[in-house]
Write a protein that binds this DNA or RNA. Structure first.
Lengths: 152, 152
DNA sequence: ATAAAGTCTATAGTCGTAATAGACTTTTAT
DNA sequence: ATAAAAGTCTATTACGACTATAGACTTTAT
């Protein structure tokens, strides 16, 4: 049940951008170079990932000197499920229970397939986390931990 | 968040064996050939999978004419989580939240890593399904559907 | 004009998955 | 005793996806 590196790096980048957005900075933008250095992500790989996310409509960018990437919507409006799906495809463990990429799996009868029932549960369990968690919720959880450490 | 073919085939085989066990047949055994034909699984691949499961202690086998595989414990005592872990490794999407295969992921500080918090939730969500579902529960769900179809 | 930054496409390398092969061992039936 | 049926074990291949790198191009600020 692995998350790919592409998915991991993409999530890290989006979380960084959301954190930046919530600082209230006038232009909450980050550059590839910044992000790749902070989290030790290969820059050229990250570039592709951000491009994918941009083409999926989650990021905007500014070219040229002083450019960078920023979220195209408020952090509340972007879920982790959207990010993972854009980068890694369906959340479902098997295609026959996928909402976005259904395919029959070849078992004699889907209605009475035990595997399919359980994998449907797994898909829902994953979706209940990733589709209900927004970038804003992530940053606020991080903030909560950080302040509880500073004021014990 | 894919389940590998190995995992899928292994689960299918174990569910077949559990179904067989619950028929009350005197010797609830199935042969590789039977299982591979029923669910269109490449026989030689299934062979490897069953061997892995046997070495993990979930199956016993009988060699020679009239041999085959059978569950080493009651279907109630075997969870899907055990099967998936034996075949595909940890359930966790990233190693830094894995119970059975923890590894640091290289983020600056694990305690305040937003990705890690969420992936921990995902791991728990998956585990809450797979570790709490036994083969017996799968077969009884299948039976429930089958009888509700016959008596509408 | 130049340097900084994102865009885009192609391609290489690597690794895990899926599958196949084949020689060996055990057991049953005749 | 022997042959056929079945599981055991290890090696190896084939393939594709994932990861990463390269390089030429475009846009923008100073």
């Amino acid at each position: 049940m692995r998350l790919s590196k592409r998915g991991e790096y993409g999530l890290r980048a989006m979380i960084m951008l959301a954190t930046q957005a919530e600082t209230g900075a006038p232009m909450p933008m980050l550059q590839i170079k910044d992000m790749s250095q902070r989290e030790k992500i290969p820059a050229k790989f990250l570039e592709q990932i951000l491009l994918t996310l941009k083409n999926a409509g989650m990021l905007h960018s500014k070219m040229g000197v002083g450019g960078g990437y920023y979220l195209s919507r408020a952090p509340e409006q972007i879920t982790l499920g959207q990010i993972v799906r854009a980068l890694d495809g369906p959340l479902a463990p098997v295609n026959c229970v996928s909402q976005m990429a259904y395919e029959p799996c070849g078992c004699p009868d889907e209605a009475t397939c035990g595997l399919r029932m359980v994998m449907g549960d797994v898909r829902n369990a994953i979706s209940n986390v990733l589709d209900r968690t927004s970038l804003a919720e992530v940053t606020s959880r991080v903030d909560a931990v950080k302040t509880s450490i500073n004021k014990p």
